[in-house]
C-alpha cells in the first residue's frame, strides 16, 4: 500500500459522497416543490421583455 492506493480509495469515497449529495438534493427538491413550478421555465421570456427585434 502506497499513497496512490490511498488516493484510489479516497476517490471512490468522494465519488460516492458527491453522488449521494446530488441525488439527495434532487430527491428533496422533487418532493418539496410542485412539478408544475419546477418545469415552468419558458423559452423566449427575455425576448418578450427586453429584445424587441424592431429597427
Amino acid at each position: 500500500m502506497d499513497i496512490w492506493n490511498y488516493l484510489e480509495y479516497a476517490a471512490w469515497a468522494l465519488s460516492a459522497l458527491v453522488a449521494a449529495i446530488m441525488l439527495l438534493d434532487m430527491f428533496r427538491i422533487d418532493t418539496t416543490y410542485d412539478n408544475e413550478l419546477l418545469t415552468s421555465s419558458r423559452e423566449g421570456e427575455l425576448e418578450l421583455t427586453q429584445e424587441r427585434h424592431e429597427l
Partner: peptide
C-alpha cells in the same frame, strides 16, 4: 507506482464537475 486503477478518478472527475454545474 505501476498499475494505477484509473476508474475511481474517472468517476470522480465526472461526478465532481456535474456537482459543480448542479
Amino acid at each position: 507506482h505501476s498499475g494505477l486503477n484509473q476508474k475511481p478518478f474517472i468517476i470522480l472527475t465526472i461526478l465532481a464537475l456535474a456537482w459543480l454545474n448542479y
